[in-house]
């Protein structure tokens, strides 16, 4: 029951084109690991592939932000509208219609400070994705560890961890994350000092992780409880396998499906959570480009300049839709028995 090939290491070259003539049946049976099977099914799911490409584009834009900035010739920090007269009117709104969209400023300029919207959007993906990715990773790791320990150890440990999970899930999380931000920050920096930007990012990651792991832990605990009673685990135990071996070689390979599916669903929800925090004014701080702060600014000026709100709004909408579709496809590919 070991899955030697993790899904991520499978390259397109390994997969079998469904249209090609059937191969030697023996090789087919022996040669296709679950990871390859998953990849094969995934490739046939057109929606999933398109969604995956869109998600990849977002990641690529985030990674290549400095390059795009150089090609485009602008950066997200310069206040073009303030520096160059004729871009913003006396109230600070773009003079050109539609938020000041022009061949020079593709997505217009920000009301007030007059920064470039396109650059803010591109660099904003970076902030949101990096924070959400780190928090997803952290929450998934804690969820795996707690879930497996609770399910495998059983007894008093399980009871205790179960109660901790219950309490965590009963916390009003939005309110608590907001209340927690200053607490966590205070651990690193004195009240009088200015908070460095990287520290705010780390704080966000910590609080999002702290309130993100519990549901995955509960799910995995349940899975481990039922797996533990299965024959192959008994067999391993009878042959004298150590608990570490049972966990890593017998249990964990069977848990990759729920873990991966949950992680794909967690990432977009954390992207939106991070944006929501910045929208409420407790997330990323100036001058780091951030989608949530664009929303905050957008809702302040929407009566006069609705265009500025549209860009982060539509960009986030497409991102979340693509990610949700990708999550569905990953689940279908892993577990074809579950049909939506």
């Amino acid at each position: 029951m070991t899955f030697p090939t993790p899904a991520t290491s499978v390259t397109p070259a390994d997969s079998v084109d469904p249209a090609s003539p059937p191969r030697d049946p023996d090789r087919d049976v022996a040669g296709l690991s679950p990871g390859r099977l998953m990849w094969r099914r995934f490739r046939r799911d057109r929606t999933g592939v398109v969604a995956g490409i869109i998600v990849a584009c977002y990641v690529l834009v985030a990674l290549a932000a400095p390059l795009i900035s150089r090609l485009y010739g602008k950066d997200p920090y310069t206040t073009y509208g303030l520096d160059t007269p004729g871009l913003l009117n006396e109230y600070g709104f773009p003079i050109l219609p539609n938020g000041g969209i022009s061949s020079e400023f593709w997505f217009g300029i920000e009301p007030g400070l007059g920064r470039d919207v396109f650059m803010q959007l591109v660099y904003g993906i970076r902030t949101s994705l990096a924070i959400a990715f780190a928090a997803t990773l952290g929450a998934t790791l804690i969820g795996i560890v707690v879930g497996i320990i609770a399910g495998y150890a059983g007894g008093r440990t399980d009871y205790l961890l179960g109660r901790v999970i219950d309490v965590m899930l009963s916390f009003p999380s939005t309110l608590f994350i907001i209340a927690f931000m200053p607490v966590v920050e205070n651990l690193f920096v004195g009240p009088e000092e200015e908070t460095p930007i990287w520290l705010r990012a780390v704080t966000l990651i910590i609080v999002l992780t702290a309130f993100g792991w519990a549901s995955l832990a509960r799910l995995l605990r349940g899975q481990v409880l039922s797996l533990r009673e299965r024959e192959f685990v008994d067999a391993a135990r009878v042959t004298g396998a150590s608990p570490a071996r049972i966990i890593f070689k017998e249990l964990l390979p069977n848990l990759w499906t729920p873990i991966l599916v949950q992680a794909t669903l967690m990432l977009p929800s954390l992207v939106t959570a991070e944006a929501a925090l910045s929208f409420l004014g407790v997330g990323m701080i100036e001058p780091v480009p951030d989608w949530g702060r664009m929303f905050l600014r957008g809702t302040e000026v929407y009566q006069d300049d609705i265009t500025y709100l549209m860009f982060p709004g539509v960009a986030l909408l497409i991102f979340v839709i693509a990610f949700n579709l990708l999550g569905d496809s990953v689940r279908d590919a892993f577990d074809p028995k579950i049909r939506r």
Partner: peptide, 18 residues
């Protein structure tokens, strides 16, 4: 329902207000 599950209240709510 896919779109509904993906929109943000601060975006769609503000648009609706507008």
């Amino acid at each position: 329902s896919l779109i509904g599950a993906s929109v943000q209240i601060y975006f769609v709510g503000t648009l609706a207000m507008y």
